[in-house]
């Protein structure tokens, strides 16, 4: 019997040890609505309304942890999605509706404390969707191992959205600005500003098309954007599989949110790639999707090809005429 137990214990230890890739977190801080199974706040309020929001702040790490909690503006990330301003960035948006002073506390292991934020909707607020955020993070940055002499320390953060709907007319709207070419750290991309001009959040997929000066298609890629929040501006950044050669290009981006019946196209937007921007032609790394690039071996200006063709035809006609004249002689 004891031999059997020993075998079971050895097997259990082996199985536990086999899960080697489960790394120990340097911080396990959490924030969520207190007394609720919801992961975040979703509220419908009228202008002038006020509501108390109580959050539970938890430390599930093995030791006491210094934690900072604060209210922050939410914004649309590049290519959409829920972004949260950092603790030292100014509060200029919907987070101003939250009375929740920034605080640093020592949270004991396995402890949960509650804090209450007071949300007040300004009386002159128009109908639509709004978003802010509440966050908790490590008060002190934590070193990451093996980062050499370029030292990187991390701030481990969890943030939850506070989504507020003010009842009334919904007026969705979207605009796309001029295209530009970026080559940063050898990574090429085409970037369009995207502005949510309406009062509802949108999540628009779409398509990107790139043509060279001759009108030949260089690249085409379906785009999936995350949330672009009402009254907010972000950018659609389309990574290219390789840098563009010097010359003029035309890019277009179309986006559509079928749920909100919004459809918009940038139309053809022209930009130029300079010699300096085209200094490298190495394909960049893999990973998330990149727009494939089909380019001619040399970037010939659009007018040059017809001109060359015309010259050849003229030369042939001239040669033919000369040959005929010579034969008659």
């Amino acid at each position: 019997m004891s031999r059997f137990l020993a075998i079971v214990m050895i097997l259990a230890a082996f199985l536990a040890g086999g899960n080697a890739s489960a790394k120990e977190s340097p911080a396990k801080l959490g924030i969520k609505p207190a007394g609720s199974d919801d992961a975040y706040f979703t509220l419908t309020l009228n202008p002038g309304d006020s509501k108390q929001l109580t959050v539970a702040l938890t430390n599930l790490g093995p030791a006491t942890m210094g934690a900072r909690t604060y209210a922050a503006d939410a914004y649309s990330l590049i290519n959409g999605g829920f972004g949260v301003r950092l603790h030292d960035e100014p509060v200029e948006g919907t987070a101003r509706w939250l009375e929740y002073p920034s605080e640093t506390i020592d949270l004991e292991s396995a402890a949960t404390v509650t804090r209450t934020a007071t949300l007040t909707v300004p009386s002159n607020t128009g109908p639509g969707e709004y978003i802010a955020s509440l966050a908790i993070e490590t008060a002190e940055p934590i070193p990451i191992s093996d980062s050499g002499n370029a030292v990187v320390k991390q701030i481990v953060r969890q943030a939850i959205p506070v989504m507020i709907t003010i009842p009334g007319e919904r007026t969705p709207g979207l605009e796309i600005g001029d295209a530009s070419y970026r080559l940063v750290a050898d990574m090429p991309s085409v970037v369009f500003p995207v502005v949510n001009t309406g009062n509802v959040h949108l999540k628009p997929p779409g398509e990107f098309v790139l043509k060279d000066a001759r009108g030949s298609e260089v690249s085409r890629l379906p785009i999936t954007m995350g949330s672009v929040y009402a009254h907010d501006t972000t950018s659609a950044e389309i990574p290219l599989a390789q840098p563009l050669k010097p010359g003029q290009y035309t890019a277009s981006l179309s986006l559509a949110d079928s749920k909100e019946s919004v459809q918009v196209s940038s139309g053809p937007r022209t930009f130029t790639v300079s010699d300096e921007q085209a200094s490298t032609s190495q394909p960049v790394g893999s990973g998330s999707q990149r727009a494939p690039v089909k380019q001619a071996t040399s970037a010939i200006p659009g007018w040059l090809l017809p001109a060359l063709l015309g010259s050849v035809v003229t030369a042939l006609v001239a040669a033919g005429v000369a040959f005929q004249l010579k034969r008659r002689e």
Partner: peptide, 11 residues
């Protein structure tokens, strides 16, 4: 030295 903010959000 740089500070990298790693954020996890429920959306």
């Amino acid at each position: 030295t740089a500070f990298l903010t790693v954020t996890m959000t429920p959306v």
